[in-house]
């Protein structure tokens, strides 16, 4: 660019080269392991010599798992999770940034506090709630035996969300990262946007739909892709929430390739092959949309 640009560019190239190698090395190792047979693996453990069994492993994974069905489940769940997160984040962030109402910071704090406690630590109680979404309604109606006095019996509504796409996706949406990112984006928008819209006669909802939403298309799309991949690799909750094999996601289905007994040595070649097969879709997604992700997350409107 300006002064000694060449030496800066050379340093940049070296750094990027190192970074790329650092990122690729583990992936290369996955690819190599996927080409070995279980027998090779038992004799040599992990090794850096490629084998010749990749397609055998692919065929084995294909026959041991129900990939077409599970990949469809993954697509649906990941799309629901990321779509839901984007929608929730958009309306919440709009409320947080563009309203001068007193309780708004409280709402924001309540949402952001959820970022740090992973769902792994709430599995049992989230399951309890998901198995009957009407739990809080029942509890409220039955406080002090009120419902029983009025209607003769305590209220006992049942609404089981387990083993459904909604039941798998909804608890995964309860995480405030999207809100945080969109709030930051909205804060970088020109200050008089809302004032100008009002002068043109638009109310808050019109402003949101006609001005803010088009402006946010880029960030929302990036977030969608980003959360989609995140939802794709989620393991613990989809495993617990899907009681029937038909509802399992692809990453959960891969667990089937794990060792049969606690004492067994895992069939890593097979597991790595499965990991590659399941990762292909998000990887292609990244490769195709990388420019869009980068542009969309700029947190600023140029």
């Amino acid at each position: 660019m300006i002064e000694n640009a060449r030496s800066i560019d050379r340093t940049a190239t070296v750094l990027l080269l190192l970074g790329s190698v650092f990122v690729l090395l583990p992936l290369a190792f996955v690819a190599i392991t996927a080409t070995q047979s279980y027998g090779d693996f038992l004799r040599n453990n992990f090794s850096l010599l490629p084998g010749t069994h990749f397609w055998d492993n692919v065929a084995a994974v294909w026959s041991l798992t129900d990939l077409p069905r599970q990949i469809m489940n993954s697509v649906i769940v990941a799309a629901l999770v990321s779509g839901g997160k984007c929608f929730l984040a958009f309306t919440t962030a709009y409320a947080v940034v563009f309203f001068r109402t007193r309780y708004v910071p409280l709402v924001y704090a309540a949402v952001v506090a959820s970022i740090m406690l992973p769902i792994e630590l709430r599995v049992i109680t989230v399951y309890q709630v998901a198995s009957n979404l009407a739990l809080p309604v029942n509890a409220a109606a039955n406080t002090g035996g009120l419902w029983a006095v009025l209607f003769g019996a305590p209220l006992d509504l049942q609404l089981n969300a387990l083993d459904s796409y909604a039941g798998i996706a909804l608890p995964l949406m309860a995480q405030g990262a999207g809100t945080l990112i969109l709030v930051q984006f909205f804060k970088t928008l020109p200050r008089d946007l809302a004032r100008a819209a009002t002068m043109d006669g638009a109310g808050p909802l019109r402003f949101m739909a006609d001005v803010l939403l088009p402006l946010s298309k880029g960030p929302l799309l990036s977030l969608f892709i980003y959360f989609f991949i995140g939802g794709w690799v989620d393991y613990m909750w989809p495993l617990v929430a899907a009681s029937s094999p038909e509802m399992q996601t692809a990453v959960v289905g891969l667990a089937r390739l794990g060792p049969g007994m606690e004492e067994d040595i895992p069939n890593y070649p097979l597991e790595m092959t499965g990991a590659i097969m399941v990762t292909v879709i998000p990887l292609v997604l990244i490769a195709l949309t990388q420019r869009r992700i980068v542009r969309g997350l700029a947190l600023s409107e140029k």
Binding site: A95, R122, T125, M173
Partner: peptide, 19 residues
């Protein structure tokens, strides 16, 4: 703003704060 945030708050309440 409350109504706008309410879908998010409902999800948070059910699957974060209640558990």
């Amino acid at each position: 703003p409350f109504w706008l945030a309410s879908p998010q708050l409902l999800v948070m309440f059910l699957f974060f704060y209640l558990p």
